[in-house]
Simulated assay, not measured.
Amino acid sequence: MNHWSAIQHDVNIFCSCVTRIQDRNQNGCSVDDKIASACALFKEEDKKHMNFALMHWWRILKDKPKWMERRMQNGGTTTDSNKK
């Protein structure tokens, strides 16, 4: 359980970094460029300035409904949440 907590924490932070990079809407940037920018942002924000070492976990979890829902809740792209 403790191992999962560490994985979940770091993947959540990285997911937030990816969302912020994608929200910039930079023209001409490939997916790989955006991931590299998100890795740099993660390293900047990490208390120990460590690289994101759980890319394999992020690739598995990123398209799962639970993670997509969490991304929406954490300020990612919103669809109809502000509509009445």
Rank of each mutant, 00 (worst) to 15 (best):
L61I: 05
K47M: 07
M55S: 06
S16M: 11
A6N: 09
K84T: 09
N25Y: 12
N51Y: 07
A53I: 05
R59F: 07
Q73I: 11
N12Q: 14
I21T: 02
K64P: 04
N82L: 15
F14Q: 00
K62C: 07
L41Q: 03
M1D: 07
K47A: 11
I7A: 09
E44L: 14
M72I: 13
H9C: 08
H3R: 15
D46F: 00
N27F: 07
N25W: 15
D63K: 11
N12G: 14
S30A: 03
T78I: 11
K34H: 02
E45F: 11
K64Y: 01
V31A: 09
I60H: 12
N27A: 10
W58C: 00
C17F: 06
I13A: 02
C29W: 10
R20F: 02
C17E: 05
Q22T: 05
S30T: 10
T79H: 14
M1L: 11
T77M: 14
K43G: 03
Q73A: 14
H3K: 15
N82I: 11
V18G: 00
E44G: 06
R71V: 02
N51V: 08
M50S: 15
W58I: 02
S5A: 13
W58S: 00
G28V: 03
K83Q: 13
R70H: 09
H3C: 14
M1T: 08
